[in-house]
Design a protein around this nucleic acid. Sequence first.
DNA 1: AAATTATTGTATCATTGAGGTACAATGATA
DNA 2: TATCATTGTACCTCAATGATACAATAATTT
Lengths: 235, 235
Amino acid sequence: MSNLISAVDYLPGISIDCVIFGFHDNQLKILLLNFKSTDWLAVPGGFIKESENLEEAAQRILEERTGLTNIYLEQFHVFGDRNRRDDEVMKSAMAAGGNIIEPDHFLMRRFISIGYYALIDFTKATPTPDVHSDTCEWYDIEEIPTLIYDHSLMVSKALETLRFFLDEKLIGFNLLPEVFTMNDLQNLYETILDKKLLRTNFQRKMLSLGILERLDKKMTGAANKAPYLYRFTGK
Amino acid sequence: MSNLISAVDYLPGISIDCVIFGFHDNQLKILLLNFKSTDWLAVPGGFIKESENLEEAAQRILEERTGLTNIYLEQFHVFGDRNRRDDEVMKSAMAAGGNIIEPDHFLMRRFISIGYYALIDFTKATPTPDVHSDTCEWYDIEEIPTLIYDHSLMVSKALETLRFFLDEKLIGFNLLPEVFTMNDLQNLYETILDKKLLRTNFQRKMLSLGILERLDKKMTGAANKAPYLYRFTGK
DNA sequence: AAATTATTGTATCATTGAGGTACAATGATA
DNA sequence: TATCATTGTACCTCAATGATACAATAATTT
């Protein structure tokens, strides 16, 4: 019997899972939780309160794990296969955390999970484990271990969506600090798309979009011509 | 008390709604159900059985309304706003159909709806009302009346998604019969995208994709040069 | 303080793809 | 057999992208 999770106040049979992307040291990263005293890793998730809209629930879940509000957030897929969860994994994961779950506990029932992906400024997040987890840490997207249930599928589907909409919706800027160089931006694009881009053409294209403000201050410190700093304006 | 709808066997709090597109007489159409003895119109929907995957449930719902199997089908959005349903509408709609619903009936509870859009060959569908409906009919997308709950939003979001992926995923062919002329295809594109396309460029582009098989047989009957017939091959 | 180095900002040329026009080909009709 | 309406294709133009060249410059080295 769990004294930590109660079905009260939450919509039954539905959860939200969030693939939270960050960018640091030219690496694309996501936040993962472990389950207490186990090696199992999972994408941060939670449930929906009766009083919440979906979007609000997702924002709350994100704030609880990152400390950030007003995060860029988008639905990308609903995961609802009949056997997407492995009950034995959940049972033993909870047992390792000190919670014994009866076979008819609501966590043992079938769940539909709504997948969201979030893009955040790595430098501003403070990853915080939840009550079932010892750790909440960044993992390089290239080195994600096997995840619980269908969470590996979630991550690859989220990445696919991010790639697809990167140019279309100009969402990459949500992963950068407020001020950045053209080189920072290109590194971000190259990392997400996993391919090299021609510097000069990339610069021409970005500038032609009319969404960047070139600041007076330049980025100094390196032994070469100082690059301009930019800020994303959106128009 | 409803003797037609029981919560047994279905996942609670989750429904599937399907925006079913067809193409006929150079018009893009969707299938709508009315509620018995009312003017209320809704997109066909249903619930998910314990034994079904999401996709399977959606396919079943589609088959029940159209008689077709193996339909092109895609999730496009989850609708889960707290107040997306108007309980009074549901109550009186069911009452008009001869079903009295208690306040705590499962249909009166909050529902999350997974939106799917489907593309079907108009000529092959046989629209069939469900037990709560008198009619199941095609409506020109330009002349959709106000729909129940947030179903108008669903339709516009589905159309937006269809437009967005039309070129990207080459899904338009699902709306045409197996064999068609280049003119048929162009009319379809012009109708969905709601803009005129240049005939010669459209033809060049479609042929260059390498996804069409040009048949030996030509389309005769009109007082002009007989156009080729094509079949979609996908490669 | 002058030369060197690494990188940046911009100009330019080449190639590709899409927008647009012209015209010969042809199935049915007059 | 001539006419008509539409189709299939060639071609011209222009815009976007790929690719190369080179001058400008902040820090370092000499």
